[in-house]
Structure formats: structure tokens, C-alpha cells
Design a binder for these strands. Structure first.
Length: 432
RNA sequence: GUGAGAGUAGCUCAGCUGGUUAGAGCACUGGAUUGUGGAUCCAGGGGUCGCGGGUUCGAAUCCCGUCUUUCACCCCA
């Protein structure tokens, strides 16, 4: 019986696994150098956990199960609720700000399409317990640090940044009621995906007041923060939020990553819990869906039964990123060759035993070492050695009668006779 | 949930206006080469042409259904 792989999942054959590791190792390396510590949680949680901040529609896109004790569980579709739970549990003993990162494997029962699968990996970084704009800037910097590190430039990607707080304040000065904000966000967020006339039509349906409608439309065309200052009569919150956003850009400039960043009023993010800075990373051509995104959220911990502590975070999935890197020719280049240190060849079946012994000694000393189970001629064994990218090949042959081995450097082709005892005593230990 | 395209060897695909035994490249195995690799040449293994039904003397090829997959919509934490 042939059982196919499950829809929306991937098999990672060794070359794929090498790429995946290259990607996730990069996430980890950059997180650490930006001062984040790694955490992880269980791959499943109570179903309820994922229903707290989102409705039933999202619950339909969960892989859920009932365990034998009747508990309703779900495989995690995101790690933020777990993070909130973990932080809440130890909130009083953790030094602030908490800077944590994770690379969880997540599952969502959505229909797969380009850049979206049912199982994927997502890099998450969060700074909890600081409302300083430095935290906002640091999260964005860390994100760019990674993207830049793997070879992407401002020609390839752009981080579009805006502020929920500012948008809310400005919309309110225009006259939009607070309770109308969320449904309006949903529409404004789609502006870039819709043809302009469709967008205008939908907006007109949503906003009955003609003056309001015009002002919103005008607001959504602004290209700089400067324009917003002059666009509306200022109220205190609006002014404050504009200053804050400018401060974030100033910090990003100081950090030397301003080339990657641009203000974009249409960045709102679907999620209701964002309260301040919001940002999304896109490929420059905007051909792909967002590579990642994040922002400041003030109520998340509280929603999970903790204190009202401000936080800012970012999430980036592996699917879209991999597509972009593939297109840019970065991923294939980076594919690490499986590399071994030694290949032990034997010229005659009677030396097999010795070859096994040498292999074991080298392995115990930390060297990646291989040999062939089945005897074949030296040419074949050398071919195998080069296929395995062995740095050196040791040949156990008739020289061994004189207590000698042939050690061949596989890249130069150079080979020499080495006394067996000397070879063994010189093995040393490979630094790990 | 809605719509469109695609399923032929391990992979990428050709063959498709029906016609004998279904092909190529890459990969794999063996040989040329019984002690010297990466190259080259030769040979070999590997297929229920996604599955089921229909039309036909004859179906990989045409028709219907079904499954899978890709892409788009919805959604996007």
C-alpha cells in the first residue's frame, strides 16, 4: 500500500534539510547576536488558547484533536499565545525587557498555495516589558540584520512601516468613531491588493459621510509622515504618534538600515491586537506575499491573564523567504556540501578489519569518517571518497605489511606514505 | 468553501490531430580500469502513462467521473 504525503506538508531530503538548517541556523545566529534568548513550547496546546484572541473562523483553520482524556487540543498555528503563557507564568522573576526568540514548527489547515503551506517554520522575536521605541527599532533592525546577512539588499526587499496608533488618531480627527476603526482597518489594509476604483467603491460603501470619505482617501495616498502633519488639524495623540513614528525612523537611520525602510500608510496588519508600530517586509517587486511582519501590541499578555505589559514582536515564515531566496539565486549557492574528513579505502579484503579499526579511531577523535562495506577496487573507492567530499583518503594496502598507510589529499591529489603508529598518534582531537 | 491549469521512469520533461514493443537528459548500478577519484565512453535496472469508467478493431493520446497537485479568490495569526 502506497501512502502519499499529507497535503501541504514537505519532505526534507538531505539536501532540503541542509537548506532548511541553513535558514533556521541563520535565524538563530542573528537572534543571539541581537541579544535574544531562545525558547520553545509544546507543539500542541489547549484549543481554547488559540481562540482567545481570534474568532471561530480561525479555529476552522486549526488542526485540532480530542485526546483520550477528552481534552480539546490543537496543533499550534502560532507561538505567540504560548509565549504569552510562558511569560505570564514567570512574569515577576524575569528581568525586563524580556528578549526572546523561537523558531517553531507551526501548522495551519489552510489551502496550500504559493508561499503558504500547512506546515512551516516561523522565526519569532519579541521584546516584552518595554514601551521604549528603541524596542520597536531593535526588532526591525534584527529582522533586517538577518535579511542583509543572507545577502539581500535594499534593491531586493523593503520594510514598510506605519503606526496603528497614528492611523487611529488621525482617523478619529477626521471623525471616524472608535468602534468603526477595526472594520475600516480590514478594508484599508487591502488597498494595495485591490484596483484603486474597487477600493474607492468599497470605501464609499463603508463610509457614508462624503467629507470623511474624501479625507480618508486623501490620507491613504500620503507618501511621507510629513504630509500627515499638514493634512489634519492636530490633536495631542495624533501629534504624539507622529513624533513616535519619526523617532523610530530616526533610530533605524542611526542603526544604518534606513535604506531598507520606508513609510507606508497602508500597512495595517490584519490582527486586531496591534496598537503601535506596525511593519511588513516585502520583496521589492511586491510579487510575493509578505515575507514577514510585526509590530507593537499592548494587550496580549493581559488577554492571556497576565499584567498589562507592552511588547513588540516580529514573525517570519520560511516559505515565502525560501521562494525569494530561490529567485535571487541565494539559496542554491548556500547549499552546504555534505563534507567528510576521511574516507578509508582498503586494497584487499584482508585489510577490511584494519580499515574498520582506523575508521572507529578517527570517529572517536571527532572526524567524520566513512568506508565501504563491500570490497571494490581502489578506483571505485576513491570515486566514492570524492562523491562524499572527503578531504583525505587513507588507503590500507600492501604498504601495511611495512606498517605504513597511504594518505591522499583529495583536493590536491598529493599523497604520502605515513607510518601507521605515527598516523594514529597524530590523530589528535578535532575541535568541535 | 469558489474558480482555472497540470498529472508519462527517482527528478526534469518529450510523445498527445488515436496505430506495432512508451522515449530523452540527469540520477542510480555495472563495465572500460584487479592500487588511484572528479572527465569520457559503453551497457544495465527502473513505468499499472494518477485511478475508475466510456467511445473505438485499437487509448498515454478523445470523452466523463474521481483523486492528487499547482495557481488564484476567501483568509492570512
Amino acid at each position: 500500500m502506497k501512502i502519499p504525503p499529507v497535503k501541504g506538508t514537505r519532505d526534507f531530503y538531505p539536501p532540503d534539510m541542509a537548506r532548511r538548517n541553513w535558514l533556521t541556523d541563520g535565524w538563530k545566529k542573528i537572534s543571539l547576536r541581537n541579544g535574544f534568548e531562545e525558547y520553545d513550547g509544546p507543539i500542541f496546546e489547549y484549543l481554547k488558547m488559540f481562540q482567545v484572541k481570534s474568532g471561530d473562523e480561525i479555529a476552522e483553520q486549526l488542526f485540532s484533536l480530542t485526546d483520550r482524556g477528552g481534552r480539546e487540543l490543537a496543533i499550534r498555528p502560532e507561538i505567540t499565545p504560548t509565549l504569552a503563557r510562558m511569560v505570564n507564568q514567570q512574569i515577576n522573576s524575569l528581568p525586563k525587557p524580556i528578549k526572546w526568540f523561537s523558531v517553531p514548527r507551526l501548522c495551519r489547515a489552510e489551502r496550500p498555495q504559493k508561499g503558504r503551506l500547512r506546515e512551516f517554520f516561523q522565526w519569532n522575536i519579541d521584546i516584552i516589558g518595554s514601551d521604549d521605541l528603541l524596542a520597536d527599532a531593535e526588532v526591525i533592525f534584527c529582522t533586517i540584520d538577518y535579511l542583509q546577512n543572507i545577502g539581500l539588499t535594499p534593491k531586493d526587499i523593503v520594510v514598510k512601516i506605519s503606526s496603528r496608533k497614528m492611523l487611529a488618531a488621525v482617523l478619529q480627527t477626521i471623525g471616524v468613531e472608535k468602534k468603526e476603526l477595526d472594520p475600516l482597518y480590514a478594508l484599508l489594509d487591502k488597498q494595495s491588493k485591490l484596483p484603486q476604483d474597487t477600493f474607492e467603491k468599497l470605501l464609499a460603501e463603508k463610509v457614508a459621510d462624503k467629507t470623511q470619505y474624501k479625507k480618508i482617501l486623501e490620507l491613504m495616498t500620503v507618501k511621507s509622515i510629513e504630509q500627515i502633519k499638514t493634512l489634519t488639524e492636530q490633536n495631542k495623540t495624533a501629534k504624539e504618534s507622529v513624533d513616535e513614528l519619526e523617532r523610530v525612523f530616526e533610530l533605524l537611520n542611526v542603526m544604518g538600515v534606513a535604506d531598507f525602510c520606508s513609510f507606508d500608510i497602508s500597512i495595517i496588519r490584519g490582527l486586531a491586537y496591534y496598537t503601535g508600530t506596525v511593519f511588513e517586509i516585502y520583496d521589492k517587486a511586491s510579487q510575493l506575499r509578505a515575507i514577514g511582519g510585526g509590530g507593537r501590541y499592548d494587550n496580549l499578555l493581559k488577554d492571556f491573564g497576565g499584567p498589562a505589559i507592552s511588547a513588540v514582536g516580529m514573525g517570519m515564515g520560511d516559505c515565502v523567504l525560501a521562494i525569494l531566496l530561490e529567485e535571487k539565486g541565494i539559496l542554491p549557492e548556500q547549499l552546504p556540501q555534505p563534507k567528510s574528513d576521511y574516507f578509508i579505502a582498503y586494497a584487499n579484503q584482508k585489510y577490511l578489519q584494519k580499515a574498520v579499526e582506523i575508521t572507529a579511531k578517527l570517529r572517536l577523535a571527532g572526524f567524520i569518517t566513512n568506508f565501504n562495506y563491500k570490497f571494490s577496487n581502489i578506483g571505485k573507492q576513491l570515486k566514492q571518497a570524492s562523491n562524499q567530499n572527503a578531504a583525505k583518503c587513507v588507503i590500507v594496502g600492501d604498504e601495511f605489511e611495512k606498517n605504513e598507510l597511504v594518505v591522499k589529499n583529495m583536493s590536491t591529489g598529493e599523497q604520502k606514505l605515513i607510518d601507521y603508529d605515527k598516523f594514529i598518534s597524530d590523530i589528535g582531537t578535532k575541535s568541535k
